[in-house]
């Protein structure tokens, strides 16, 4: 079991291999569909002009995400203000929807880890090699359990996207994950996909 604290250094990332169990502690930021689309359009491809507090949030995110982790999660949060916010259900959402965006977002913010479920594709795997970074797989649906590792909510951006889509800044302690995509081109998802495809072809021929 690797115990890792954010921000994460490149040498730690390079030491991680597919199959490693890890517990993460420190600050991380949630971000899913709306957030990724917004980051790409506003700051990376710049096809949409920055509006409202966009530029200010961008500056904050650059500091928070540098060397840190983005979590594909749309939590259930109680409370009405920063002092009251508490995560009560916070498992991972399916990551593959961020496949068009993830590698560029990782490089732009120097993100070292992406937490989600279901794995990601070739473009993100290449992003993991180049940044370098890894994909951490959390247990899908284990929302009450994972919410217990969230010790504090320290901020929230883009609440206008709605509770699930907002970017929540959280502190976690011993958040359990498994490395399923590493910075050396290894992907458990590609391995299982290929092996299951072979079995399928065999079953279809019967």
């Amino acid at each position: 079991m690797h115990q890792i604290q954010t921000p994460i250094g490149d040498e730690v990332i390079r030491s991680l291999k597919v199959g490693d169990s890890v517990t993460l502690s420190g600050t991380m930021v949630t971000g899913r569909d709306a957030a990724h689309k917004w980051m790409i359009e506003t700051f990376i491809k710049q096809t949409r002009p920055a509006q409202g507090d966009d530029l200010q949030v961008h500056e904050e995110l650059k500091k928070l995400l540098n060397g840190s982790v983005i979590y594909h999660c749309g939590p259930v949060v109680t409370g009405k203000s920063l002092q009251e916010y508490r995560f009560i259900a916070a498992g991972p959402t399916t990551s593959i929807r961020e496949e068009p965006y993830q590698a560029d977002v990782m490089k732009h913010f120097n993100i070292k880890g992406v937490i989600g479920k279901g794995g990601m594709g070739a473009k993100t795997l290449k992003g993991c090699e180049e940044t370098p970074g890894v994909y951490f797989h959390a247990i899908g649906g284990a929302a009450s359990f994972l919410a217990q590792t969230v010790t504090k909510v320290t901020g929230v951006f883009k609440l206008e996207f709605g509770m699930p889509e907002a970017m929540w800044v959280i502190e976690v302690k011993d958040f359990p994950v498994v490395v399923t995509m590493d910075s050396h081109g290894g992907s458990q998802h590609a391995v299982v996909d290929e092996a299951s495809k072979k079995v399928l072809n065999d079953l279809l021929s019967r």
Binding site: G19, I88, A90, G140, G141, A142, A143, S144, F145, P164
Partner: peptide, 28 residues
């Protein structure tokens, strides 16, 4: 195995959610 670990976490989560009346999965 990671598979067994996943199922163990799932079962812990089921118990915790029931005890605390919190959503089993955040995607309700």
């Amino acid at each position: 195995s990671a598979a067994r670990g996943a199922l163990e976490t799932i079962l812990k989560n089921i118990e915790l959610s029931r005890a605390n009346s919190t959503p089993i999965c955040q995607d309700t």
